[in-house]
């Protein structure tokens, strides 16, 4: 009698794969708009022509640029002027510390945000200066000289005080670029920092109250509380978060979330941070996966040999 098993196997595998293809890759390609990353090149922003001078930049940042009026720069000995919830009450969010901004944010983006924050952050639909809707970060109107040169100097200064780009850690990247708006409760991160473990319940409650005040301000500023990103690496996936970070408007038109302007390397670090939060055991999974596969293949080989031996007398 002819052995029909190979053809039966082909039929079963064919129908199973067809079903899989239709309900997974195909259905998802129809349901979700596919956005390609541009590699964080920020092609819409003008290229930098001027070479900056960090020393002159320092004077501007500390002086006429007024950056330190709102931002702290801890490495340069400029601590925050007020507590985060107070800053948020004034500006909507707590302006991030600029110590490592030069390493985390793209240079073209930094130039643009100093000149025109609403444009760089891609929130011009919410902040239109002509209609009197001012972005809380005041643009730099120049200190009397060539404004482009002045901005280039400030960016050069920010880059000179920052860690080297390769020294940016996942936590640093996330806290600087996203942490002022998003909590990640699985990493204990709140918008006003990691919640310490207080001995006294009163201190703990005091922290919670500050946090709630802070969240009220962002809610008013953004229209809603930005979501806790703990499990977003599983709910949205790496590709979505990457392209969303690069340009939030590409996937959620009209969203209040700004383009944050991270470099490609920092974006990778942000993803790594989110993986540590929501896909913590991925390395273990790969390692154990390999071992289990080897074990199961050996099991299957033994099962096959056993079958052969048992069936020898049956034909």
């Amino acid at each position: 009698m002819k052995n029909k098993e190979p053809i039966i196997l082909i039929v079963v595998v064919f129908f199973a794969l067809l079903t899989y293809y239709l309900v997974e890759p195909y259905a998802h390609s129809v349901m979700h708009k596919h956005v390609e990353s541009e590699g964080f090149s920020y092609a819409d922003l003008p290229t930098i022509e001027k070479k900056g001078d960090a020393t002159r930049g320092q004077e501007l940042v500390m002086g006429a640029g007024a950056c330190v009026g709102c931002h702290s720069i801890e490495v340069a000995g400029m601590p925050a002027a007020m507590e985060p919830q107070m800053a948020a009450a004034s500006y909507g969010v707590n302006p991030p510390d600029l110590s490592n901004a030069g390493a985390i944010f793209d240079a073209k983006f930094l130039v643009d945000i100093i000149k025109n924050p609403a444009h760089a952050l891609m929130v011009e639909h919410k902040f239109d200066a002509e209609k009197g809707q001012m972005h809380p970060m005041v643009p730099f109107y120049g200190a009397g000289g060539d404004i482009d040169q002045e901005i280039a100097d400030m960016v050069a200064y920010l880059q000179s005080i920052a860690v080297k780009p390769e020294e940016v850690t996942p936590t640093m990247a996330f806290e600087n670029a996203c942490g002022r708006c998003h909590a990640v409760s699985y990493e204990n991160w709140t918008q006003i920092g990691i919640k310490p473990s207080f001995k006294d319940k009163k201190d703990s409650l005091a922290f919670d109250i500050k946090l709630l005040e802070y969240q009220d301000s962002i809610k008013a500023y953004m229209g809603k509380l930005p979501p806790d990103l703990s499990m977003y690496i599983r709910s949205r996936g790496e590709h979505y978060i990457n392209t969303f970070m690069e340009n939030p408007q590409s996937q959620l038109e009209g969203t209040a979330m700004p383009r944050v302007g991270v470099t490609a390397e920092s974006a990778e670090k942000v993803i790594e941070y989110l993986e540590d939060a929501g896909d913590t055991k991925r390395h273990e999974r790969e390692e154990i996966g390999m071992n289990v596969m080897i074990y199961i293949v050996i099991f299957a080989i033994f099962a096959f040999l056993w079958k052969k031996q048992v069936w020898r007398d049956l034909h």
């Binding site: 997974e24 599983r234 999974r285 996966g289 289990v292 199961i296 293949v297 099991f299 080989i301 099962a303």
Partner: peptide
């Protein structure tokens, strides 16, 4: 013995899904 042989092949497929292709079973 044949059941076990087929189970063996099935488990290879199954654990491949568990470790490397689980997204279809756990909706995002």
């Amino acid at each position: 013995s044949k059941d076990m042989m087929v189970v063996g092949i099935f488990l290879i497929f199954f654990f491949y899904l568990v470790f490397y292709n689980y997204g279809f079973a756990m909706d995002a």
